[in-house]
């Protein structure tokens, strides 16, 4: 895509006055809108809870242990992502792949544990329509899980089939940029979980 590279500037190199290449600028804006999306749901949570006559003691009907383990799982996955990116910058593709596989594996572990929690709720006849708390809990964690699935798709592409992109002209630095942008998204999804865990399990 050398033509595109010259056609649209700052795909690989950052622009001097903004300090960002296009995709990084774009992903920060996307994450800003994601903050507003999850922010609106957190605000909805606050308004529903403040306006509600009854509210369950969340830590009693939630499996705090699994939630805590899941926090560790996602945080580790984020750390693996950074290790993968560092390896990629050092041109150590084997190491990069190893860490990317770990990122994806831990994302699946997160989803599995989330599924276990959902199963426990369902087996106690706790459904979204049971109470407003459960409704907002299922909605917010469900939306977050969709973000995890999206991240798995992107990360899997870059961990394997997408590697051919490095063979294009300028492709190595370009690929590092792509992985960095995917990483920013992944860290954001991780961060959202930290807020979800404290709000929906502990408060």
């Amino acid at each position: 895509m050398s033509e595109t590279e010259e056609f649209i500037p700052y795909i690989v190199k950052p622009r001097e006055d903004t300090g960002l290449y296009n995709a990084k600028f774009g992903i920060w804006l996307f994450l800003a809108s994601e903050v507003m999306l999850f922010g609106s749901l957190f605000s909805a949570y606050i308004l529903l809870r403040v306006g509600s006559f009854t509210w369950p003691v969340q830590s009693e009907i939630q499996n705090v242990a699994i939630g805590a383990i899941n926090s560790v799982v996602l945080l580790s996955s984020s750390i693996f992502f950074i290790r993968a990116w560092v390896a990629l910058k050092a041109d150590d593709i084997a190491k990069y792949k190893r860490f990317m596989y770990l990122v994806i594996l831990f994302a699946f572990i997160f989803l599995f544990l989330k599924g276990v929690e959902y199963y426990q709720h369902f087996s106690h006849h706790e459904y979204p329509k049971t109470s407003v708390f459960l409704a907002i809990y299922f909605l917010m964690t469900g939306l977050h899980a969709l973000h995890i699935i999206g991240g798995i798709l992107v990360n899997s592409y870059y961990a394997g089939p997408g590697l051919y992109l490095r063979d294009k002209p300028n492709g190595k630095q370009w690929f590092i940029n792509r992985v960095e942008v995917a990483g920013l998204y992944w860290h954001f999804v991780d961060l959202v979980w930290i807020f979800l865990f404290s709000t929906l399990y502990l408060l």
């Binding site: 800003a32 809108s33 994601e34 507003m36 999306l37 999850f38 609106s40 749901l41 909805a44």
Partner: peptide
Amino acid sequence: LLLAFPPLEGAAFL
């Protein structure tokens, strides 16, 4: 549009 539309998307989900 970037910052004001997502809350409506959230509301639409609800």
